[in-house]
Amino acid sequence: MPENFESFIQQHRDAFEEPGPSPKVWDALERELEGSRKGRIVSMMGRNWFKAAVIAVLLVNAAVLFYIAKHKQHQQQDLAVVIPEIQEAKVYYTNRINEKLELINAYPANELGLDSAARQELQLRNDTYKTLENELKNNPGNQRIRGAMIRYYQLKLELLDKILEELQDKHATPPTHTKKQYEAEI
C-alpha cells in the first residue's frame, strides 16, 4: 500500500499543486478588510461619543483642580512669610485697642452718646477689618494691603483716643466705677 500511495502522489503531483486564488481575489479581500476597519472605528465613535465627551470633561476638571490646589498651596506659603510681620503688629495694636475699648465701655451708655451702629464700628473686628483681612489672605505679598491693615489699626487707635479724651474732658476724673458698678447703682 505505501508503494501504491507514493506512486499515486508522484503521478498526480501537478494536480496537488494548484496555484491558489488569483491576485485579484487577494486585492479585493484586502480592500474589504480595510474598509470594515475604518467603518468599525467610526461607527464605534458614533455610538460612544458621549462617553468620550465625559472623559474629556473629567480630564479638564482634574487639570483645573490640580491648578487650583497648587495655587492655594503657593498662597499658603506666601502667608507663612507675611504673617510674622503682620502678626506682630496685630498683637500690639489689638492689645492697645482692647484696652481703649475697655476704658470706653466703663462709661455708661447714656453718657457715651453713641448709638448701636457707632458702637459696632468701634469694635476691632468690624466690616472694614474683615475686608482687609480677606484681601490680605488673597494677596499676601501686596505691600499696599499690609500698609492699609497697619493704617487701619492706627486710625482705630486715634479714634478711640479722641473719644476717651472727650469723655475725660466731660468728666474731670476718669471713671473709677466700671460699667457693672454703674448698673448695680441704678
Rank of each mutant, 00 (worst) to 15 (best):
V54P: 01
L136W: 05
E158V: 09
R119E: 10
A109N: 08
T94R: 06
I97R: 07
A89W: 09
D127A: 15
Q87L: 11
P140W: 05
D127H: 06
A80M: 10
N138W: 03
K156G: 00
V42H: 00
Y152E: 01
L65W: 12
K70I: 13
R151Y: 15
L122D: 07
S36L: 04
F50C: 06
E102M: 11
Q154K: 06
I104E: 05
N142R: 01
R40C: 00
A69N: 14
A69Q: 14
P108T: 08
N105W: 03
T131V: 15
A148Y: 07
A118H: 14
L136H: 02
G147A: 13
Q87A: 13
A148N: 14
A52D: 04
R96I: 12
V82P: 10
Y152M: 04
A62S: 14
P84F: 08
T94P: 02
L101F: 07
L155C: 08
R96Y: 11
I145R: 02
L157F: 13
I55C: 09
A53Q: 07
A63Y: 13
G141W: 01
V64D: 08
G46S: 07
V64E: 08
P84K: 09
F66E: 13
Q120G: 13
Q77V: 08
A89Q: 14
N95E: 08
L58E: 09
Q77A: 12
I145L: 04
Q143F: 10
K90M: 10
K51D: 03
A148M: 13
K156N: 04
L79A: 11
A89V: 11
N105F: 07
R125H: 12
L136N: 05
Y67K: 03
V64G: 06
L103H: 00
P108S: 05
A69S: 15
V57E: 01
L124C: 06
W49S: 11
Q77M: 08
S36P: 00
N95I: 02
N138C: 06
L155H: 14
D78F: 04
L157T: 11
T128W: 06
F66H: 09
K70G: 14
K70W: 09
N95H: 02
S43I: 02
N126S: 13
Q77Y: 08
K137D: 15
R146I: 03
R119L: 09
L59E: 07
T131N: 13
R144V: 10
E102D: 10
L79I: 12
K70D: 15
K130S: 15
Y92T: 08
I97D: 04
I68Y: 02
A80Y: 10
N95Q: 03
I83V: 13
S116K: 03
V60Q: 03
V64T: 09
I83Q: 14
E88M: 13
E133Y: 14
Y152K: 04
E85F: 09
